[in-house]
């Protein structure tokens, strides 16, 4: 445990400098502030500084391909452009389409698999461990593997379809199928996430209410509706929030599967920002759009996570 040793040595040098043990030099409050300071400095500098930088650039004219580079202030011009840019709004719409479809399918499938895993008798542990695997794989690496599997000529999916006598598909090459193909990939990678967490929630449910309900000869559907789902609600909400936030940030899968194509069929917000900022080097416009995107994510997170956060604060206060 090299890390532990590092922690101890760091803390003890700090102890020698500023807070000799036993003598109360610092109140608990200042001690707690001292402990979070290194982490907070790091987070503040490297999270807020880029943010400030982005705000600054978004108020200027900044085209890295032009000789001036980052140049004069233009007021809110870039925001005006962003809010009226149809390509931007189309990409926002694609992100929403992707998010709603992928998260909905993942929730339904994941919950179903969790119930299945909870019911089976043999090799439950093995099945559960194997389900972890897609989650751990680098999205870009497995995304590229899926691109090979989706290949219209040499891909295994078309091979299977052909051997079943079904028509072969141009998975990533057709405008209509490209987005569903990306969604299928996401569902493959993240359904296990939902399944595992819901399973953990199911296993943590108290036994007594269910036994009582069974003695009352309540129907399975009734038990599900009045006991299981209400009791699972916090876990389901959490899974949903985490998946939704992640789906909005989708980038790796689009990069490895379609690069936003064909045409712009799979160009989600993140990919459009990448293209505008780091391919066309319109830093001003892409910064303004990035900030709008960030704003939306922060509002979304804050609204969804408020209760979750309050619980954490409560728990901390009680401890």
């Amino acid at each position: 445990m090299a890390n532990l040793a590092d922690v101890s040595s760091q803390v003890s040098t700090r102890a020698a400098e500023s807070a000799p043990p036993k003598k109360r030099v610092l109140s608990d409050t200042w001690y707690s502030v001292l402990l979070i300071t290194p982490a907070m400095i790091f987070i503040f500098i490297f999270a807020l500084f880029p943010l400030g930088y982005a705000i600054n650039v978004s108020l200027r004219y900044a085209d890295l391909t032009s000789p001036q580079g980052i140049s004069d202030y233009v007021g809110l011009e870039n925001y005006r452009f962003a809010l009226n840019d149809n390509i931007f709004w189309a990409s926002v719409q694609r992100t929403l389409t992707f998010g709603v479809a992928a998260v909905a399918i993942e929730m339904v499938l994941g919950i179903a698999i969790a119930f299945l895993l909870n019911e089976i008798k043999w090799l439950k542990g093995l099945a559960r461990s194997l389900f972890i695997l897609p989650l751990a794989a680098s999205p870009v690496a497995v995304g590229l593997i899926w691109r090979y599997m989706y290949h219209p000529e040499f891909g295994v999916y078309n091979g299977i379809l052909a051997s079943l006598g079904l028509p072969e598909q141009n998975w990533l090459g057709s405008t209509a199928l490209a987005m569903p193909s990306v969604i299928i990939f996401d569902v493959w990678q993240w359904t296990p996430f939902v399944a595992l967490i819901v399973l953990a929630g199911l296993q943590a449910l108290p036994k007594e209410p269910f036994e009582a309900a069974r003695l009352d000869k309540a129907s399975t559907w009734r038990i599900l509706r009045t006991l299981t789902f209400p009791m699972l609600a916090p876990v389901l909400t959490l899974v949903f929030v985490l998946r939704a936030i992640d789906a909005v940030r989708l980038y790796d899968a689009v990069f490895s599967l379609t690069q936003g194509g064909p045409g712009q069929a799979t160009e989600v917000v993140t990919y459009y920002l990448y293209r505008l900022g780091l391919r066309f080097f319109r830093l001003d416009q892409s910064s303004a759009m990035s900030l709008l995107f960030l704003y939306a994510v922060v509002v979304f997170t804050a609204l969804l996570m408020r209760r979750f956060m309050r619980n954490i604060a409560e728990r901390a206060r009680r401890a």
């Binding site: 987070i43 930088y53 650039v57 980038y251």
Partner: peptide, 17 residues
Amino acid sequence: LTTRMMPGIAVIIPFFL
């Protein structure tokens, strides 16, 4: 937590510069 929820693409250009 919100810093973690930030989409990387939104802060990558400042980091790059």
